[in-house]
């Protein structure tokens, strides 16, 4: 269901929710936000709960960084500790770090909700149609979407070639020396590939003088209005509840 929502409406609501996460320094608000985002992904968009959990891992690792930093250097965060002292996790050493940790996960899950449920093509088209994004920039973004997996495939091929020269199969993880050796060939590949893509786009009329039709632009509808009312209402209730 979330996939059918207009990308700009979804973006606006996600940004509002992220702004609220940044403004409200209360772990209950962060927990509620993370749970709502996860529930929306699982219940409304049939995303596997395991995938949702997996998506929280990088944000959790990032959040642990905040947590440990605050445990180690908590005397430098007087203001935050003063605010957090009135919250759920009142133990001084933990409260700031836990809140920052939860905030990272909450913001991460809201961002993931937008990324997982938004077709990048539809989003770029919407930006071109409604936000006056230049078609040159818009289609450059499309090309990047195409080139990124090609770069990964090229990196795998180059690693195979290096492994052949070394005389043993490649390891799963790239070491620092191998990564450095990949840099120049991948850069050369990306430049050459981007140049060819630019020529192909120009040959198909990108950069032509005058207007350009943009087909399949998502249209605002009743469903988007209802989504905005429900999501906005939920956010308002949560803010009011937390502040109260």
């Amino acid at each position: 269901m979330l996939r059918a929502i207009h990308p700009l409406v979804k973006l606006a609501l996600c940004l509002a929710w992220i702004a609220a996460c940044l403004a409200v320094f209360d772990p209950r608000f962060q927990i509620a936000t993370a749970l709502i985002a996860a529930a929306a992904l699982v219940l409304l968009d049939r995303v596997s709960p395991i995938l949702v959990l997996a998506m929280t891992v990088p944000f959790a690792l990032f959040g642990i960084g905040f947590l440990t930093t605050n445990l180690a250097f908590h005397e430098e965060a007087d203001f935050a500790r003063h605010i957090a002292a009135h919250s759920l996790f009142a133990a001084p050493a933990w409260s700031v770090g836990i809140t920052l940790f939860l905030r990272t996960i909450a913001i991460g899950l809201v961002s993931a909700l937008f990324a997982v449920t938004t077709d990048p093509g539809a989003f770029v088209r919407t930006l071109m149609a409604y936000a006056r994004l230049s078609p040159r920039v818009g289609y450059a973004l499309f090309s990047v979407l195409q080139i990124v997996p090609e770069l990964a495939a090229e990196a795998r091929q180059i690693r195979l070639a290096h492994a052949m020269k070394r005389g043993r199969p490649p390891r799963r993880l790239v070491g620092p020396v191998e990564a450095a050796r990949l840099l120049i060939p991948l850069l050369a590949f990306a430049i050459r590939r981007a140049g060819r893509a630019a020529i192909a786009l120009e040959a198909r009329g990108l950069g032509r003088a005058g207007q350009r039709t943009i087909v399949h632009v998502p249209v605002l509808g009743r469903r988007d209005l209802w989504f905005a009312v429900v999501a906005g209402g939920l956010l308002s209730l949560l803010l009011l509840g937390t502040l109260a």
Binding site: S143, Q146, R196, A200, T213
Partner: peptide, 27 residues
């Protein structure tokens, strides 16, 4: 133009959007 490498011609969109591209350019 039809190029040697289809990956060069296409820019990662959906099939119908790829086919429509040049026609969109002509408004």
């Amino acid at each position: 133009y039809a190029f040697q490498d289809a990956d060069q011609t296409l820019c990662g969109m959906r099939v119908e959007d790829e086919i429509a591209f040049a026609l969109e350019s002509r408004a």
